[in-house]
């Protein structure tokens, strides 16, 4: 168990957004957070990265209290892929090198450059190294941002809806990259998702969030038609097609 969240509460101006959220993520696991719009998914993710501080509860990363660390120390433990990013006029290599920032003291060392090269090689993006970020397609840009988070060498990787705005091929590629990273680097990956079918296909664990509270949490067994209908308010059937589980709204 690398990430454990216990009794986290958060409110925006006395309007409760998260209520007594608790769950745990193991190493090598792809953990998906699902829920209706406004359920508090992104807020939860921002708490996990300490961008915002919950009103109550604890978040531990391998028994270390997230809120006892400095911002820089958090950045060495937790990588974060935001929903929106701006594409500045920098090359792919420089953009990924930025992921080394929490580790860099004065300037990037040979080791930092080496790590960046490796990450780009693993993602098959070596030939993009010197392309400018603002000339990339949406899918390519998303991969660069994930590469940056991997170069950060975090123990916990957080992604906020990484597949929205991507076409089918890129959705699969991005989630495959993330899943492989979880396995090979033995890190915990937490992904906020909207697409239930993609979640069923790639995630190991599921957290169903409804109006700021945990509705259900666990493995594939929690993805029942009853739970899904309970969260989204839409009756669904969960079937298998070509040996792939799919959610069909009725």
């Amino acid at each position: 168990m690398i990430l454990s969240v216990d009794g986290v509460e958060f409110s925006y101006n006395s309007r409760p957004v998260l209520r007594d959220v608790r769950f745990a993520v193991n190493r090598g696991e792809l953990f998906s957070i699902l829920g209706n719009n406004g359920a508090g998914k992104s807020t939860l993710l921002r708490c996990l990265n300490r961008i915002i501080r919950p009103r109550a509860g604890s978040i531990l990363i391998e028994k270390e209290d997230l809120f006892a660390l400095t911002r820089r120390e958090v950045a060495r433990q937790v990588g974060y892929v935001a929903q929106r990013h701006e594409s500045a006029r920098v090359t792919v290599f420089d953009a990924v090198l930025l992921g080394r920032k929490p580790h860099i003291r004065w300037d990037a060392t040979a080791r930092d450059l080496e790590i960046v090269r490796e990450v780009l090689a693993v993602l098959g993006m070596e030939e993009f190294s010197l392309r400018y970020l603002d000339e990339l397609s949406g899918g390519e840009l998303q991969k660069v941002i994930i590469a940056r988070a991997l170069a950060q060498e975090p123990r916990v990787l957080l992604l906020d809806e990484p597949t929205s705005n991507l076409d089918l091929k890129n959705q699969f590629e991005v989630l495959q990259i993330v899943k492989r990273a979880a396995r090979e680097r033995n890190i915990a990956v937490v992904v906020v998702m909207h697409d239930l079918n993609l979640a069923l296909r790639f995630a190991d664990k599921f957290l169903l969030l409804k109006n700021g509270a945990v509705f259900a949490c666990g493995g594939r067994e929690v993805m029942t038609p009853e739970n899904i209908a309970g969260v989204y308010g839409v009756p669904v059937a969960v079937e298998r097609m070509a040996d792939v589980p799919v959610v069909v709204p009725l």
């Binding site: 961008i51 892929v81 930025l98 920032k101 940056r148």
Partner: peptide, 18 residues
């Protein structure tokens, strides 16, 4: 490096420890 991180957007910069 902080300014470079900010170029990636505010949330990204915070995620990088800025």
């Amino acid at each position: 490096w902080n300014y470079n991180a900010l170029d990636g957007g505010e949330e990204t910069a915070k995620g990088l420890g800025v």
